[in-house]
Design a protein around this nucleic acid. Structure first.
Length: 767
DNA sequence: TACAGTCGGGG
DNA sequence: GTGTACGACTGTA
């Protein structure tokens, strides 16, 4: 018998004999393949006559399941229920057995029938990707015991040193033809010609053999590179060991478009390897935002295999965590949710059908404003009020006496870890190397927490229940209202409230300490944690563009004490705004952010106008690269299905004509051309810069600029008229009920914004 | 003028 | 292997 310690890399079913294959990385750096017996069970409930039929049916199946009667807990029922337990020795045989059962007995109720092996393993052994284990195994590689030494909740996980090979073509294969494969391994770089196919494969295979990587980190590996290489190897009859498990071919999951987060999303096809991880940076949803650390963190806390964690949404993650909690607490996991909403009274409907509380902000400019937010408000409410599909309806912000429900049980450690990470983050100095790591992990958690709330109200979620969802929003509104009362009792003016945050103001209070007492009072009156997002030097809430008198809750910008900007709802935040317009708007905002005091803002107006002017003349003189003028629209359907031929639809049609079809969920990039035309960016011929619809872009630019100028009291139309030249510009700058009349002389061409000093001493313009 | 279509959010 | 709902806004018909 051999004792050893190792990190777990991969778990999958053994094709040779019943059980699992596990790949480990040992503490002394070996890559170890072990096998482990792993019988799996699913459960069936229904009328006893039908269950007896099912019993007979199962006895005749080649998988030879072990059958027994058991009493188990269904989360939606108060009493335990009698179920038929179907145990299979070879885990790989379960899916097919379940499918044939379902075919034959579609009306029975199934549990634990579609749970992936790594999740079952996690439930039974508390394992998770890259967990550190104490192992006992014999010479034949048969695993006798596995004891996991750490938990997903460690703040400082110790990871093994992974061997990594990075592979990427020299350009985007969907936009041009790549010529080289760039390989990075062990500090060395190689550039292999894609046209010399035999040497390419021989070199790659040599590298794979020599370095035996744990992680293949690619770009377009999912959608192009790995299938291309694999097909090539097959054609040329050369070996290419992409998998560490050499008897297996990789898994190719097809591309798909799906509805998530209120929009159509697109995922390219995926290539999953056995015994080592493949991550395609181009196709990894979480990769861009959180990096490998975020992916590993997702994998740890959700127990999803790394390759899946990298490519799945937080919804899959949180759903998996709920399944884990259920399995560990001996609660049946329904195969399909079949829970109907309970009937509601009319009053319930009126009270329940509201979302988060939204208040109308006071339009305009405000100085010295504290922004305070509840920390992960909805998840915190779910934990505090014990809101779960199986628990009773709690009073507003009250704790129920029932045992902790499945959802709070799942969330509590996650919430605690996030708070710990955030606290540590706040205490680390800015230069500290761990900051980025903690921030990435904290954000990954935030996503899981946010999504968990949405999942409660999702009709197809396994553990969702709309009443629970509504109980959460009801308590959320109550918390915000109590916070408002508390602030007003303390003499603050509440300028705005939005779902989980509020903006408060009191003359003379402009330091973080000035809000400490308020924070703790709100925390005690609501029982929820709350934090100061920051103190704004000044903040501007914008009105609706359609009607100046109507405030909109989420269009604002402001500057914090540390000079950092916060921008919401402006053009620059939108992904369909071209980079040039975004740059212009951000330049203007960053420039205004130099103002120490809102009262100084008028002094910055000439400089801001000069910045605008500079960008406009860049456009006129053709100095703006075409890429910076690209608009990007997400397609929601195939081009021919659009009733209204939007710019995006027209551009997608152009691409479809040359065989470059985009799927729903993908973005199409385009330029506006004169004569109301559009042109897709990814057409073979580059567009003629002369045909660009400059007027159109200038219009977009002025629109964006006007949002920024609005709180200065400068209306968009006046700005447009004045820029044409020849007239004076007169307007009123209002702050704290004091009005300043401002007069600008007729617009002059000759200002280069490079000449604007960063620390401003500008002439007075006031009349 | 009606309404189809797209966006946001979190950091 | 999937959050919903909705308001703001723009551009087409």
């Amino acid at each position: 018998m051999i004792n050893n310690e190792a990190w777990l890399l991969d778990v999958f079913e053994d094709l040779q004999c019943p059980g699992l294959v596990l790949w480990f990385l040992t503490s002394d750096g070996q890559r170890l393949r072990l096998t482990q017996p792993f019988p799996v069970t699913f459960y069936v409930a229904g009328k006893s006559a039908q269950l007896r039929e099912a019993w007979k049916f199962l006895k005749e199946q080649p998988a030879q399941p072990k059958l027994s009667r058991q009493s188990k807990k269904d989360i939606f029922l108060t009493e335990t229920i009698d179920v038929l337990a179907v145990e299979v020795n070879a885990p790989g045989l379960l899916p097919r057995l379940f499918r044939s059962m379902l075919n034959r007995f579609p009306n029975l109720t199934y549990y634990d029938a579609d749970i992936k092996l790594p999740i079952r393993h996690a439930a039974r052994f508390n394992s998770f990707p890259a967990c550190y284990c104490a192992l006992q195994y014999d010479e034949s590689g048969f695993l006798h015991t596995i004891e996991v030494q750490n938990t997903p909740w460690d703040l400082d996980p110790v990871y093994p040193t992974l061997r990594v090979i990075e592979l990427e073509p020299d350009c985007d294969p969907f936009r041009a033809e790549p010529r080289f494969l760039l390989v990075k391994v062990d500090g060395k770089q190689y550039r292999l010609s894609l046209f010399k196919k035999r040497p390419l494969l021989i070199t790659l295979q040599a590298l794979l053999k020599k370095y035996d990587p744990d992680l293949l980190l690619t770009r377009w590996g999912d959608t192009w590179l790995l299938p291309w290489l694999s097909n090539l190897a097959e054609d040329l009859q050369l070996p290419l060991w992409l998998n560490r498990e050499k008897t297996r071919h990789y898994i190719q999951r097809p591309e798909r478009s799906y509805f998530s987060y209120g929009q159509i999303m697109y995922n390219g096809q995926q290539i999953h390897l056995f015994g080592r991880w493949h991550i395609d940076r181009q196709n990894a949803m979480f990769w861009r935002d959180f990096g490998l650390d975020g992916i590993l963190e997702m994998a740890r806390v959700t127990a999803l295999p790394v390759q899946q964690a990298a490519r799945s949404s937080p919804g899959t993650g949180i759903s998996t965590m709920q399944i884990l909690t259920a399995l560990r607490n001996d609660i049946l996991v329904p195969w399909h949710k079949q829970q109907a909403e309970q009937p509601k009274t009319a009053l319930d409907l009126i009270q329940a059908d509201l979302g988060g509380l939204v208040y109308q902000p006071w339009i305009g400019l405000h100085r010295d404003v504290g922004a305070i937010d509840f920390i992960s408000m909805y998840p915190a409410i779910m934990v505090r009020c014990n809101i779960s599909p199986e628990t009773g309806k709690p009073g507003l912000l009250e704790t129920s006496p029932e045992p902790q429900g499945l959802i709070p049980k799942t969330l509590a450690p996650l919430l605690e870890k996030r708070v710990n990470l955030k606290q540590r983050l706040a205490s680390l100095p800015r230069w500290h190397p761990n900051r980025k790591l903690d921030a990435a992990r904290s954000s990954a958690h935030k996503w899981l927490l946010v999504t968990c709330f949405g999942y409660l109200g999702y009709k197809n979620a396994r553990f969702g229940r709309i009443e629970a969802h509504e109980a959460v929003t009801a308590s959320g509104r109550e918390a915000l209202l109590r916070a408002k009362e508390t602030a007003e009792d303390a003499g603050f003016q509440v300028l705005h409230m939005y779902v989980d945050g509020l903006w408060v103001q009191q003359p003379g209070k402009n330091q973080p300490e000035d809000f400490t007492e308020l924070l703790s009072e709100i925390a005690s009156r609501t029982g929820l944690s709350i934090a100061l997002d920051g103190v704004y030097r000044w903040v501007a809430f914008l009105p609706s563009r359609a009607d100046e008198r109507v405030p909109v809750p989420n269009r604002y910008f402001g500057v914090f004490q540390d000079r950092s900007l916060k921008v919401r709802g402006l053009e620059a935040r939108r992904r369909d705004t071209s980079p040039w317009v975004t740059r212009l708007q951000m330049d203007l905002l960053e420039y205004l952010a130099l103002a120490e005091d809102a009262a100084d803002l008028p002094l910055y107006l000439p400089g801001a106008i000069a910045i605008l002017r500079q960008h406009l003349s860049d456009l006129r003189l053709g100095r703006v690269p075409l890429e910076d003028l690209l608009m990007a629209y997400r397609l929601t359907r195939p081009p021919q299905e659009y009733k209204v031929k939007t710019a995006g639809a027209r551009a997608a049609s152009q691409l479809a004509e040359i065989g470059k079809e985009l799927r729903p969920g993908q973005r199409v990039r385009l330029l506006y051309l004169r004569g109301g035309q559009v042109r897709a960016w990814d057409l073979p011929q580059p567009p003629n810069p002369q045909t660009i619809d400059r007027a159109r872009y200038i219009d977009l630019a002025l629109r964006a600029a006007a949002s920024v100028f609005y709180p200065l009291g400068l209306p968009e139309q006046d700005l447009r008229d004045w820029l044409k030249g020849g007239i004076q510009l007169a307007f009123d700058f209002a702050l704290n009920s004091q009005t300043q009349h401002i007069l600008l002389p007729p617009f002059q061409e000759e200002v280069a914004w490079q000449t604007i000093p960063s620390r401003i001493r500008l002439p007075q313009w006031n009349g």
